[in-house]
Simulated scan of single mutants.
Amino acid sequence: MSRRHHFHIDYLGHSVSATVQTGHRSVVEILVDGKETGHTPIKDDGPVTVPVELPTEPPTAVTVRATPGPGEPSCLLLVPDGGEPREMAPRPY
């Protein structure tokens, strides 16, 4: 059975959302300001990283690290220059 888990964070004035779908077709989808900018399949319960760019001037490269399991999924936003990772808040929808 598939389940979809949603996460969100605002960073540098932009909305970054992640959907982690677990089950038969496991995948991570990333939206920046409502537009899909990253997509990667999940092969096991280990973390997967999805690089994306924020539409700043110049563009800012960030990475979303999704951990699908075991247990409840979680997502972190990894910022440039080794800054502290930021936890993405779960969204119940």
Rank of each mutant, 00 (worst) to 15 (best):
V48D: 10
V28L: 03
K35R: 10
H24I: 15
P47F: 05
R25N: 11
K35Y: 04
V62E: 02
V52K: 03
L31M: 15
K43R: 13
D44W: 06
P51N: 12
E57F: 01
P51W: 10
T37E: 15
R25A: 13
V52I: 15
D33G: 05
V32R: 05
L31K: 10
P51Q: 14
I42K: 00
V32E: 06
H39Y: 12
T40R: 10
T60I: 01
L31I: 01
K43P: 03
S26Q: 14
V52Y: 02
H24E: 13
P58M: 02
G38A: 05
L54T: 11
T40W: 01
D45A: 11
L54C: 14
V27L: 09
I42T: 06
V32W: 04
D45E: 15
K43D: 05
P55Y: 00
G46A: 14
V28G: 00
S26K: 06
V48E: 12
P47T: 11
V32L: 04
T60C: 02
T40M: 05
V62A: 03
E53N: 14
V32G: 04
G34R: 11
V50H: 10
E57N: 08
I30N: 00
A61V: 08
S26F: 06
H39C: 06
T60G: 04
E29R: 11
V50T: 15
V50D: 07
P41I: 04
A61R: 09
T37D: 13
T37Q: 12
P59T: 07
E36S: 14
T60Y: 03
V32Q: 04
T49C: 15
H24S: 14
E57I: 06
E57S: 13
S26Y: 02
P58F: 03
G34M: 12
T49K: 13
I30K: 00
V27A: 07
T56R: 09
P55G: 01
S26P: 07
T49F: 12
P55E: 04
T37G: 07
V48Q: 11
K35P: 01
H24Q: 15
T56A: 07
T49E: 15
V28K: 00
P47E: 06
D44M: 03
T49P: 10
H24M: 13
P59A: 02
T37N: 08
A61Q: 12
V62D: 03
V50P: 05
G46E: 12
D33H: 06
K35T: 15
I30P: 02
I42V: 12
R25Y: 14
I42S: 01
D44K: 04
T60H: 02
T56Q: 10
P51E: 11
V27S: 01
V27W: 09
